[in-house]
Design a protein around this nucleic acid. Structure first.
Length: 577
RNA sequence: GCGCCCGUAGCUCAAUGGAUAGAGCAUCGGCCUUCUAAGCCGGUGGUUGCAGGUUCGACCCCUGCCGGGCGCGCCA
């Protein structure tokens, strides 16, 4: 719908240009930034369905007063295409467009004809996007924070698919590094403990219950094979480590699948170490003078800069050239690559796979890491803004109004699994997507599992269920299901509902392009509210078949849009509740 | 000290540089013999943290403060 208006304004501008009514400077402006005008949805209903600021933007270069230019534009609009569109000058020089009821009503058959494809577009055709998300370390079960990253990444992927992008979902498994050895020692410790021994725990180990489960399972497989190796061994046996990683990853995969999240690729960090990927990436950087050796300044202002600031010489990446705060070390003291070095190699690998765009979804606690990775990608590819990093803020769990503390150490660790069992995937998804990713989420366990008015998930799902309940009723009463006469949809509530349905494609496109799924959540809540209001005031199953048919069509179109919107968020659209 | 995110109604949050800043919750008051009340209607509630700047126009962009969160070499 918006395209219609954009077309009108563009056509009018072109005509004005052609007739030479406007100064040269306007022509230049027009050519330079494609006029730069916007067509937007005014907040105020009386300002029409669409509004453009073209006359305001172009008044100065045209050497005219905004309202005068607006009048010129209005006069230059192609009358034949104005059918069903009323255009007027308002305020300081806005052009407001009012879509006539008959043109609004035409949306209903369009939505019904397009069905599940309504709201999808081809805007992103040709784009190949890789969305990397979750990537929770394979050292323990996922917690709710991972859950937020999971639904955010998946929703972004679904949105991009909806606008025609080719999308792949990828999970980066951090199966290398010191933490993995800690996991191995933790399992060995619990394993030997389960053999009835008194074992001194290793200096650092994961305290969670799940480690005991892994140990038991390993005992079932291996018997007493690992009974006598020291639990504080620096490098635990690879068989132990692999067993533990597989166990944890299986749990993670199960949790993700229960939220209907599926990855195309599970990328192992280890492979980068094993097949020389890290070395290749570093060589590539070195060849373009992005590496140097140097001593790092200790960070300023941190409390007593002490001990291990040894001032040794590091191999460094020149991140400061691209806006980072300091150059970043690539090798640890023992000569092994840092996590960052592996991540450089990982993103180098991604960059070479032919994507047009990379998206990473990270927890906000990794925010300080964004600049250096973006710098590395720019250094390797020459492309700025090739990677967009979406940071998701913390999730606060509350129950009975009190905060549920999450702490690995204290053992009050609430896993994603527990929350999913309590509330279900739909509640988790809708709730986590109900805020912009930059805002924290308070997840109220009681509310999320309640079947009450206050639960936003049910509010939208109920609207969808209502649509189907009416159709069930239609059959029960054995009423004729005729097309009806859409001309009878004249009530302001009906036209407003149609207007709302018409906005859906724009919402999807905006959410997809900005990587902001919460826009869809808000839209759906608003659509549901308008629908509930309409439903409460008007009867669908009227005696008059013409009116009944028309309202049924509107009802079905509404149900279709709600279903499509929920689907793009990965939330079910139940037909009864 | 530096970097990133944030500061909007009592609370939790929306608002692509546009016109009179919106929802939900809370609170107060109404609506079920009707297609599901898991719903609807109405009231109360704002100097968008502060001060400047950019422009026809700023919650949004820029600068400086104030307040909160996250992070800050050889953890991942």
């Amino acid at each position: 719908m918006r395209e219609i208006v954009i077309g009108l304004v563009t056509r009018a501008l072109e005509r004005l240009r052609g007739t030479g009514d406007l100064s040269e400077s306007l022509n230049e402006t027009f050519l330079q930034n494609n006029a730069g005008f916007k067509v937007e949805r005014p907040r105020e209903r009386t300002h029409g369905d669409f509004s453009t600021n073209a006359a305001l933007i172009l008044a100065r270069p045209a050497g005219m007063k905004p309202r005068d230019l607006a009048q010129h534009l209005l006069d230059a609009m192609p009358v034949e295409e104005l059918l069903g569109v009323r255009c007027e000058i308002a305020g300081p020089g806005f052009l407001n467009f009012h879509i006539a009821p008959e043109r609004l009503r035409a949306l209903i058959p369009e939505i019904l004809a397009r069905g599940r494809a309504y709201g999808r577009s081809r805007r992103g055709v040709g784009e190949r996007v890789l969305v990397e998300f979750v990537s929770a370390n394979p050292t323990g079960p996922m917690h709710v924070g991972h859950g937020r990253g999971a639904v955010t990444g998946d929703a972004i992927a679904r949105l991009l698919e909806a606008i025609g992008c080719t999308v792949e979902r990828e999970y980066y498994i951090n199966d290398a590094g010191a933490q993995i050895d800690v996991l191995g020692r933790s399992v060995l410790y619990r394993y030997q403990e389960s053999l009835g021994r008194t074992v001194v725990p290793p200096a650092d180990y994961y305290p969670g219950e799940y480690v005991i489960d892994i140990a038991r399972a390993m005992h079932a497989r291996d018997g007493e094979r690992w009974a006598s190796i020291p639990v504080d061994i620096p490098k635990p046996p690879v068989e132990v480590i692999d067993f533990a990683i597989d166990w944890v990853m299986r749990e993670i995969r199960t949790d993700l699948e229960s939220m209907d999240i599926h990855f195309d690729t599970w990328f192992s960090e280890r492979t980068l170490h094993a097949d020389g990927g890290i070395q290749r990436a570093l060589d590539h950087l070195a060849a373009n003078d992005w590496l140097h050796e140097g001593v790092l300044e200790p960070p300023k202002g941190r409390e007593p800069a002490t001990e291990e600031m040894d001032g040794r010489v590091h191999l460094l990446f020149r991140a400061t050239r691209l806006g980072d705060d300091s150059d970043r070390p690539l090798l640890k003291a023992d000569g092994s690559p840092t996590y960052f070095a592996a991540d450089i190699a990982y993103h180098y690998d991604k960059a070479q796979r032919g994507y047009t765009r990379l998206i990473d979804v990270w927890g906000a606690d990794h925010g300080g890491y964004v600049k250096r990775v973006q710098a590395a990608i720019e250094a390797m590819t020459g492309k700025k803004d090739f990677l967009d990093v979406v940071l998701t803020q913390m999730v606060n769990l509350t129950q009975g109004g009190k905060q549920v503390r999450m702490s690995k150490r204290a053992g009050t660790f609430v896993t994603l699994r527990e929350v999913l069992d309590e509330t279900g995937s739909d509640a988790v998804r809708f709730w986590f997507l109900g805020r912009s990713s930059g805002a924290g989420v308070d997840f109220d366990l009681d509310l999320a599992k309640s079947r009450s008015n206050d639960n936003p998930v049910y509010y939208v799902q109920y609207a969808h269920a209502r649509v189907h309940a009416v159709q069930v009723k239609l059959k029960e009463r054995e009423l004729e299901d005729l097309p009806g006469d859409l001309e009878l949809l004249t009530a302001e509530e009906e036209l407003n509902l149609i207007r709302m349905l018409g906005q859906y494609p724009e919402v999807v496109e905006g959410a997809a392009l900005s990587h902001e799924p919460h826009r869809v959540t808000y839209y759906l809540s608003e659509l549901a509210a308008i629908f509930h209001g309409y439903y409460n005031q008007y009867r669908i199953l009227e005696e008059d078949p013409a009116l009944r048919g028309a309202r049924l069509s509107l009802l079905r179109a509404t149900g279709q849009v709600i279903a499509n919107g929920l689907n793009v968020l990965g939330v079910n659209a139940p037909v009864s509740m």
